[in-house]
């Protein structure tokens, strides 16, 4: 998986630094891969539910399972869902919206506020499969970044999307989003949207590591802001960490693994963390695990007094 750390090194907690080793047994491997397998299953299931409802007439108790797409949908004929970022952009074009799409956006907002903001990015977004493939391939091909780009540029893109929605009178990101194009054309028939998807893939593969999801995507930036208050987080068990750095090597947003901040908060508090769970399964000390924000606050902080 990665180069073994020096076994003689001692971590700041006084324990020897151990490298992560991929288990030989299949069960062990599946354990390490459990979150990536679950994430792929979730992403494909969401796509399949939309596709099956549309093309194979999937229904439950007489109601169609999921009608529409990730921009806006109706689940089982009653529950509306909508992309809150898209709804915000339409709102800024000064057009009145029907209550259904506003309720739908609120439901999705609450859902991601509970599950962790950018959990959208790594567990649902269809473009994640494309960028993960590019990320996996670029390591094997030994591609290096063409240039450095500040990861905060996505917040500028987010601000531009909102500003341009106001100025041009159309939802700015929805008209150019490779995410919507890919998703829509998979469900409603192909056009030239694959070119936008290929663009994202090549950018991530050849130009910049995690270029789209980690630097540019305004939808990810939107959910990162939500992630700052979201409930489900990656908890951090300070005393066990040896600073081996295995987590940062697999993390698509390594800046979130600021171990000083993590020790203080008892969790990875940055909204840019996508809750993908890569770090959890490679940590040789079992320091990281999913936890709820209010639980880490109440249980982990008293331990800091003893340090």
């Amino acid at each position: 998986m990665s180069t073994p750390a020096n076994p003689l090194k001692i971590g700041p907690n006084g324990r020897p630094v151990r490298p992560f080793v991929l288990p030989d047994s299949l069960a062990g491997k599946l354990g390490v891969w459990r979150y990536i397998l679950l994430r792929r299953a979730t992403q494909i299931t969401v796509l399949l539910l939309f596709f099956g409802t549309a093309h194979w007439g999937w229904s439950l108790a007489g109601e169609p399972v999921m009608v529409g797409n990730l921009s806006s949908s109706e689940v089982l004929g009653v529950i509306p869902m909508a992309d809150p970022f898209a709804v915000l952009q339409i709102f800024l074009t000064r057009h009145t919206l029907e209550s259904r799409v506003i309720i739908g956006a609120s439901i999705v907002l609450i859902l991601y506020a509970l599950l962790g903001g950018r959990v959208w990015c790594s567990w649902v977004c269809p473009i994640n499969m494309v960028t993960d493939l590019a990320g996996w391939l670029r390591v094997r091909l030994g591609v290096r970044d063409m240039f450095h780009l500040n990861r905060n540029i996505r917040y500028t893109v987010l601000a531009l999307a909102l500003l341009l929605s106001m100025l041009t009178g159309v939802a700015a990101f929805e008209w150019v989003s490779p995410i919507s194009m890919m998703h829509r054309e998979l469900l409603f028939g192909m056009g030239l949207g694959w070119m936008a998807v290929a663009g994202v893939f090549l950018f991530d593969l050849l130009v910049l590591k995690h270029g789209w999801c980690g630097h540019l995507c305004p939808l990810g930036a939107f959910y990162a802001l939500l992630g700052r208050v979201a409930a489900l987080r990656v908890g951090f068990d300070t005393p066990t960490c040896t600073h081996c750095g295995e987590c940062a090597r697999v993390c698509p947003e390594p800046q979130v693994l600021n171990l000083k901040l993590a020790a203080r908060a008892g969790m990875i508090s940055s909204g840019e963390c996508t809750n993908c769970g890569r770090c959890i399964t490679v940590c040789p000390e079992d320091t990281l695990h999913f936890n709820l924000r209010y639980r880490v606050n109440s249980t982990e902080i008293p331990q800091l007094d003893s340090h």
Binding site: T53, G68, S71, S72, V87, A171
Partner: peptide, 15 residues
């Protein structure tokens, strides 16, 4: 123009 602004491109009408 209003249609282009308000349509969220979800395809529920299509379905």
């Amino acid at each position: 123009l209003d249609f282009n602004a308000s349509c969220i491109k979800c395809g529920q009408c299509v379905r």
